[in-house]
Computed example of a mutant assay.
Amino acid sequence: MTASSTSIRVREIEAAAARIAGHVRETPVLALESGAFDIASPIVLKLESLQHSGSFKARGAFNSLLSMEVPAAGVIAASGGNHGAAVAYAAGRLGHRAEIFVPEIASPVKVRRLRDYGAIVHQVGANYGEAFAASRRRVEETGALTIHAYDQAEVLAGQGTVAREFERQAMGLGGIDTLLIAVGGGGLIGGVAAWCAGRTSGPQIKLIAVEPERCPTLHAAFAAGEPVDVAVGGLAADALGATRVGSLMFPIARRAVDQVILVPDEAIKAAQMALWNRLRLAVEPGGATALSALLAGLYRPAPRERVGVLLCGGNVDPTTLV
């Protein structure tokens, strides 16, 4: 598989799972009690917020570094924070030099974690797009390997392993009918969609994309029929603030994503606080975005519909959970 691949196949996700085994955690799932959050349908949470570096992105980072040649100049990545942390963590574990470019809006918690992982951090630009442009200039100067946050085949295949893992874990809990996934640049839902649409056994899983109203990248792409630039902002912009979805994930999402739901910042904050106050789960706003669609009543499950929700990131300043 190369970065120019136009489709992500199940066998590539299986290969990624074998490749990264021992480097990433099998994160736990939590089946909530009946009536949790005042929702009658069964809900299963996947706690990818407990993954190495605090998010699912460690999967794509390790798959990329373990399947590509890394030059002496090391690796460069641009990120709102979580992708950079994952690349920095994986590079450090594998003995590679890492430079990470983040926008000025990046959370101080995430920037501090990047440095703790040993990365050289460049905080530049008002948004992810500007940080990405700066990272590209640095790649041209150094010849370092670049790992895109969401528009690279190795990354999508790595992220797809979380769906493979979640489905297997949920089988022991009665399975899942519907999976809610937060969307930024689309690497996560692209990998998840590739797994769910490409496998030849098991029941069909309905995929629901959830985006902040102020970061509507996939919603805008579906409306336009192609990835388009959008203005981004709001509570979850440091994690979900890509200016457009990736070109690799878009055709996969068009085939496999059933619905895109937009949620307001108020709903995201309420879900984040509900996770903390009721379950003592510390997640960042982006990590609570998928659940917010349920709690705000923007996605209403059918009776007995089993809903899986991915809590995708836990890089939160604990002082904000008050």
Rank of each mutant, 00 (worst) to 15 (best):
M1T: 12
M1L: 12
A3C: 13
S5C: 10
T6I: 13
S7H: 13
I8A: 00
R9T: 15
R11A: 13
R11S: 15
I13M: 04
I13Y: 04
A17C: 05
A21E: 15
G22L: 02
T27V: 01
L30W: 13
A31N: 00
L32F: 12
S34T: 14
G35S: 11
D38N: 14
S41C: 11
S41Y: 02
V44W: 01
K46C: 10
L47R: 10
Q51E: 14
H52Q: 14
H52L: 14
G54D: 06
G54R: 03
F56T: 11
L65I: 10
S67G: 11
V70G: 08
V70M: 06
A72V: 09
A72C: 06
S79Y: 05
H83S: 09
A90F: 05
R93N: 14
G95F: 10
V102W: 06
V102M: 10
E104W: 00
E104F: 05
P108Q: 03
V109T: 14
R115K: 15
R115S: 14
G118N: 08
I120A: 15
Q123R: 15
N127T: 07
Y128S: 01
A131K: 05
A131Q: 03
A131T: 09
A133G: 03
R137A: 15
R137C: 02
V139P: 02
E141F: 05
E141K: 13
T142Y: 01
G143C: 04
G143T: 00
L145C: 09
I147V: 15
I147R: 09
I147T: 11
H148M: 09
D151G: 04
Q152L: 07
Q152I: 01
Q152N: 15
A153M: 07
V155F: 02
A157Y: 09
G158E: 11
G158F: 10
G160S: 07
T161S: 03
V162F: 07
R164W: 12
E165T: 11
R168C: 02
R168S: 12
I176Q: 00
I176Y: 04
D177V: 07
V183W: 01
V183E: 09
G185I: 09
G186D: 07
G198Q: 01
G202F: 09
Q204F: 08
Q204V: 11
I205P: 03
I205K: 07
L207R: 03
E211K: 09
A221R: 10
A224W: 10
G225H: 08
V230L: 07
A231L: 12
G233T: 00
L235P: 02
A239P: 02
G241P: 07
M249I: 15
M249D: 11
F250C: 09
F250S: 10
F250T: 12
P251A: 06
P251I: 05
A256V: 08
L262R: 13
P264H: 06
E266W: 05
E266R: 12
Q272W: 03
N277G: 01
N277T: 10
R278S: 10
L281P: 02
A282C: 10
G286W: 06
A290N: 11
L291H: 04
L291W: 00
L294N: 09
G297C: 11
L298K: 14
P301C: 07
P301T: 06
P303L: 07
P303Y: 10
G308Y: 07
G313R: 03
G314M: 08
N315L: 02
P318H: 02
T320D: 08
L321S: 01
